[in-house]
Amino acid sequence: MPFVTRYFIKTSLMFFVAALLCALLLVLRPFIVLPAFVVGLTPVYFHLFMVGWVTQIIIGVAFWMFPKFTKEQPRGSEMLAWSTYILLNTGLLLRAVAEPANAVQMWMGWGWLLALAALLQWLGGFAFVINTWPRIKER
């Protein structure tokens, strides 16, 4: 299993746990008093699950298992794979902090951080597609 795939899969498992912890916090609200930001956790829960866990494990396994690009470079560009990893995860972590914070705190900085989170994730998705597209072929 390639080194970067191990990072993708282990990080995806951590996001899976984090997503379910968010889900747990959301259903705990009627029972205990929790900080105000918990209200803003619904989209965070969903995206930690779908981007952090599902999409990330797909990306890691695709890099490992999809048809070879060429004999010399069977998995395409290692650099693009690492870029995907860093951009997607930094963007998602930033979103996980800035989205609930932006919902409860009037500070312009959170808005800028959300915009940055959007840009980083978009670039991460783009890097993955560029690296994977040429590997989707008959042999």
């Binding site: 979103r95 800035a98 989205e99 932006n102 808005g111 959300l114 915009a115 959007a118 978009w122």
Partner: peptide
């Protein structure tokens, strides 16, 4: 990305 950007800015 556009929606998230719009939520922030």
């Amino acid at each position: 990305g556009l929606l998230l950007w719009h939520k922030g800015l």
